[in-house]
């Protein structure tokens, strides 16, 4: 048997088309990264325009308790406060509930039940957020008003928006938390049971603590999602900045304000218009940081059990 040639039959040409495809794939990847960078650049440039306006100061922006661009008051705390209120309400609702759903799915549901429930959760995650917005306005708000009284609960309020954001992120928390719980090795459950633990004791005192970092990552990502949520708050939380800690009062969130301004008839290059970029940048930094922390925590968690 003669030895086969192991040199390129056409010199180096043979590999050329592979290189071309590789380059094209790389360019596509680069393109998507460039878009993200482009967004950040525009946000930063326009924010710079905003902060270079004489009426605006950095200190005033971050500490001011009044946001009234008409009278040159640019304190963003009322907007931030409303964002935090809706997000905290959403988390208070969605974390316990999502965790219970996840525990049930991961530890107790039979394969058959899990096979039916998970698709339902995924469908829930696919509902457009504008529909959730209507839901907040036409179902949650009337419900809250009938429970707590018409005088106590305003038509637009952060509680209703927050609860519905909670419903929105619930499927995300449930499915991601289920992944985190299922990633805990089976051997740890057996150890808990073999030491005389009941299934409940084993779940809550072995499995959940062991999944804690994975669960934290899930909660951070859900928080980030809640902070960035727009349509629900735009429809149901209120259309006017209001520095209040009462969740039954109307208050405008950062995202809600951005929607109102960018959809309204404010002229380009006005201070109002530029302000939404500064707010967008703040929002971007908050959610970006949360996502980064979440990723870091989650990669550490999944490393632990490899």
């Amino acid at each position: 048997m003669t030895q086969r040639s192991i040199t390129h039959p056409f010199g180096k040409k043979r590999r050329l088309h592979e290189r071309v495809i590789e380059t094209i794939l790389f360019l596509f990847a680069l393109f998507s990264i460039m878009i993200t960078v482009g967004i950040a650049v525009i946000l930063i440039r326009e924010s710079f325009l905003f902060f270079s306006t004489p009426e605006v100061t950095l200190v005033g922006f971050f500490t001011g308790k009044t946001w009234q661009p008409m009278i040159d008051m640019f304190g963003f705390l009322p907007l931030l406060n409303a964002t935090i209120t809706t997000s905290v309400i959403a988390m208070l609702f969605a974390i316990p509930l999502g965790l219970f759903v996840a525990i049930y799915l991961a530890e107790y549901a039979t394969d058959k039940v899990r096979g039916r429930l998970k698709p339902i959760l995924e469908v829930l995650a696919g509902i457009p957020t504008i529909v959730y917005g209507y839901f907040a306005l036409t179902f949650m708000t009337p419900l809250l008003r009938s429970i707590f009284g018409q005088e106590t609960v305003e038509i637009y309020n952060t509680a209703s928006a927050g609860l519905v954001i909670g419903i929105l992120v619930l499927p995300m928390i449930a499915t991601m938390a289920e992944d985190a719980i299922s990633a805990v090795p089976k051997e740890l459950r057996l150890a808990g049971l073999a030491l005389g633990g009941t299934p409940i004791e084993t779940t809550f005192r072995v499995v959940i603590p062991a999944a804690l970092s994975g669960l934290s990552a899930t909660f951070l990502l859900a928080l980030s999602r809640a902070i960035g949520e727009t349509m629900i708050v735009a429809l149901a939380a209120g259309a006017g900045p209001n520095m209040t800690f009462n969740p039954f009062e109307a208050a405008e969130t950062i995202t809600g304000y951005i929607v109102r301004i960018s959809g309204g008839d404010v002229s380009y290059n006005s201070v109002d218009y530029n302000s939404i970029f500064a707010l967008g940048l703040v929002l971007f930094i908050i959610t970006f940081t949360l996502n980064l922390i979440s990723r870091k925590v989650s990669s550490l968690f999944y490393q632990e059990y490899e």
Binding site: P185, E187, L188, L190, A191, G192, L193, A194, L195, G196, G197, T198, E201, R205, V206, P209, A210, E304
Partner: peptide
């Protein structure tokens, strides 16, 4: 209750991802 009288050690070591101390006290605590 059977498992409190009849303990078990598994093929692959499976300590809890907790401290050595807590590993010992876990079963006693519950």
């Amino acid at each position: 209750l059977i498992r409190r009288s009849i303990g078990m050690v598994f093929q692959k070591p499976n300590p809890f991802p907790k401290s050595i101390y807590e590993n010992i006290t876990w079963g006693a605590k519950i």
